[in-house]
Design a binder for these strands. Structure first.
Lengths: 194, 194, 194, 194
DNA sequence: GATGAATGAGGCTTCATTCAT
DNA sequence: GATGAATGAAGCCTCATTCAT
């Protein structure tokens, strides 16, 4: 005796999320089938449906779990004065949050068309706009708004597009952060020499 | 003359491309079926196969047509001296090219996961890297490389992410261009004050 | 006293039958899933299996409970002389039995295709034929046999098809009973003027 | 050479309808799967979807084809004076129509729960009420309304419930028709001796 | 007296693709 | 230059049922 059929451990839900996120990030949402997820877990498709109502629900649950830090970040930001220090701190923390949930962010970046139509689409949009609102001055001119958006995208890029650039990932993240801070600084204090 | 409103023959191929790109950009590649394309054109699916070998082939053909200006841009860039003027001009031209082929760029931005696995994935990657190569100095430090990537993404953002920002599209494009130029300028001439 | 609003234990079996019959009658047998029944009871599906062997078993148990009056009616009829009074009394009692178990009769009427294949199919058939046998004369001509069948169906109709006719349900039942009696009377005494 | 793969005759649509109706009538709608229909036709399931949009659409198309005679019958009835002759003629024609489309009527009788929820449910209900309206006097008392409903159900019974009675089908139909006429006659001319 | 976790079978539907005409 | 008919693979999802706890 020894290994009975299967330990039937209570962590199946978590394992589904992990495997699913891995595949979603790697192949895309639509190209990942539930069959594939189930097989990788050595479970039947029906088992997935015991834990989640639909395929989309799997993604939503992953998103809700990993998204919490960002929500908290925004909530924190809203309690702070809109100083340059706060903004810089926001970028730092956001960069860290992204690094912690890298696969999810990669997924969202690479599957925008899909994500847009899913129920999380709005949430994401609100979140980005919320972050930008914390980073830009209320009546910032268009150019400064663009700087703030760019700062955020630069952080994303630090994680994604720079994969094709040689160098240590952590260093690339740092460099992206530096550029992002620079953009936000310039937007914060318009008098800086053009 | 006497041109009745008959469906001008001979342009079906073009019409397929137009409709397909519209749907690909709007809904995503996988979520757009050939049935949908055919119905919108009031043609049968089989007709699509008369003009294109596969679904992917439709996309590839669109890409090849609309991508030519960018290829030419890179080719032109390679003949020019790597001055700031050249770089600025490259950004201008690239921004224009994007505006001319907006749906295609939107599609590529929002369907990265899909595009990556398709035959055009490599082409796109090479193209971006080629552009960055023209824009950055050969041995630029990491931070400057990031600036150059960011400049490019900023142009994309000017077209896409800024949709949720109020303002005239053309002005947004201009603003994005301004920020992009700024980033490249800074990367070009490191002595610029912090 | 002291009866807190706790779910009275011990009556789960009954509650399952009630809810199941309600849903079976409302939606049909195949379109009602055990999940639905369980959810409406705020119990798990597995709980249903503690009380019943199979889905069909739930239906069978309902049928057996509610069908008893009809069995007794037939048994009673078999002890009576085959007079017109007896027949009339049978129709009255049958009509009452139907009113008491309306959802079950509705279910059987609207799910004949399903019921036929289930184990209760034969029982029902025998029961109807048994009733007709009590109501018609042994060697009645075909037309009179039809009258007897019609009498029975008229009672059913009084409960079901007449839902779309305005009027008090009880009055409709009475009217149906009157017509049924008339049909059986005519079958009983062939000399009645054509 | 000789028999090529399959004649690919253009009657597939019709064949699907025939086979489907046969199975629907025999086993019920829900218990008949598209797989079963396809196999019986030696076609793939996907072929069914070339000809019909959904499973329900198959049924609807069958219904629409076979229902036409009844619609015409009602239309005809509405142009006639509401005499007893007209009513009798209506019953005759309706009985014939039922005999011509026996499987469909059997299906509708035995799958009421299913049919009710399908798009044809309302059509059927309207049709029955329309027929009754032609057969009963405008302000007929409840009992006479019941007689008219009963007349219709008797015709159905002549086709269905009487299967378990010995005798030639055609004779049974005649007998049912006779009883139905009798019921309508009685409803038409209330003075008839009770 | 009931739950939590899972299964195996099968349901309907959609898709990209083919090919004879 | 296109259609009509069909296919094979696969998709998501639901169901009745089981069983250890």
């Amino acid at each position: 005796m020894g290994s009975t059929p299967q330990p039937r451990r209570g962590n199946t839900r978590q394992r589904i999320q992990d495997v699913a996120l891995g595949l979603f990030a790697e192949q895309g949402y639509e190209k990942t089938s539930l069959r594939e997820i189930a097989e990788k877990l050595d479970v039947t498709k029906a088992a997935l449906y015991y834990h989640f109502k639909t395929k989309e629900d799997i993604l939503v649950s992953i998103f809700e779990d990993l998204n919490r830090p960002v929500e908290e970040l925004i909530a924190w930001g809203e309690t702070q004065p809109r100083t340059l220090e706060t903004k810089t701190e926001l970028l730092h923390r956001y960069s860290n949050a992204m690094a912690d949930a890298a696969p999810l962010f990669r997924f969202m970046q690479e599957n925008q068309a899909t994500v847009r139509d899913l129920s999380i689409g709005d949430t994401i949009k609100h979140r980005v706009l919320g972050l930008v609102d914390l980073i830009k001055e209320p009546d910032a001119p268009l150019t400064d708004q663009v700087r703030c958006f760019s700062a955020l995208f630069t952080l994303h890029a630090g994680m994604l597009a720079l994969r094709d650039v040689e160098g240590d990932p952590e260093e690339k993240r740092k460099a992206a952060l530096e550029v992002a801070v620079e953009l936000v600084t310039r937007a914060h204090d318009p008098e800086t020499p053009r």
